[in-house]
């Protein structure tokens, strides 16, 4: 074959070889087709572990029980037992180490998430006791009259 044909061919082959060599260094070792096949399972396997190692922040009511038995006991007998402590106080993360104190949200906007009355016939929302936030003591905090841990009055 003529050299002017061969020469660019060598260049192309060199580029391909370079890409293949570079690929060995760039692509991680555990990258490949795993359990779900080529179409859905082409990935870096160790990324699954990276997601599993993500920090858990919401610890649920069981985490609060032992150190706050008074609040827990008060709450668990009331209608508000279905609400997680962290829904209102924020995620516990590693409390009491970090954060040392959780917030106490006394704002009306927290209560009216459920207790602003919405008359929606096919939703459980209409069955929750509710108020019109614009009419019902608009300048007061709900907690001034209602105990959020045990809202059953009397």
């Amino acid at each position: 074959m003529r050299s002017h044909v061969l020469r660019p061919l060598w260049v192309v082959m060199g580029v391909v070889a370079l890409i293949l060599v570079a690929r060995q260094f760039v692509v991680p070792e555990d990258f490949g087709i795993h359990e779900r096949g080529f179409m859905y399972g082409y990935h870096r396997k160790s990324n699954e572990e990276e997601w599993k190692a993500f920090k858990v922040k919401y610890r649920t009511k069981d985490y609060c029980r032992d150190c706050h038995p008074d609040k827990y006991g008060e709450n668990i007998t009331s209608k508000h037992r279905i609400i997680q402590c962290e829904n209102c106080h924020g995620p516990a993360v590693d409390h009491p180490d970090s954060p040392p104190k959780l917030s106490i949200d006394r704002s009306r906007s927290l209560c009216i998430r459920c207790h602003a009355y919405l008359p929606y016939p096919t939703s459980q929302r209409s069955e929750i006791k509710g108020i019109d936030p614009g009419e019902h003591n608009p300048d007061m905090e709900c907690s001034m009259c209602h105990n959020p841990h045990k809202p059953d009055m009397g």
Partner: peptide, 26 residues
């Protein structure tokens, strides 16, 4: 998952338990 099929670099995938994840570094 159609979102996984279209990924040109293999950064999103379905884990063996069915959850579709994204490899942020990829």
């Amino acid at each position: 998952p159609p979102c996984v099929q279209v990924c040109p670099v293999g950064a999103t995938y379905q884990a063996p338990d069915g959850v579709v994840l994204i490899d942020r570094s990829w």
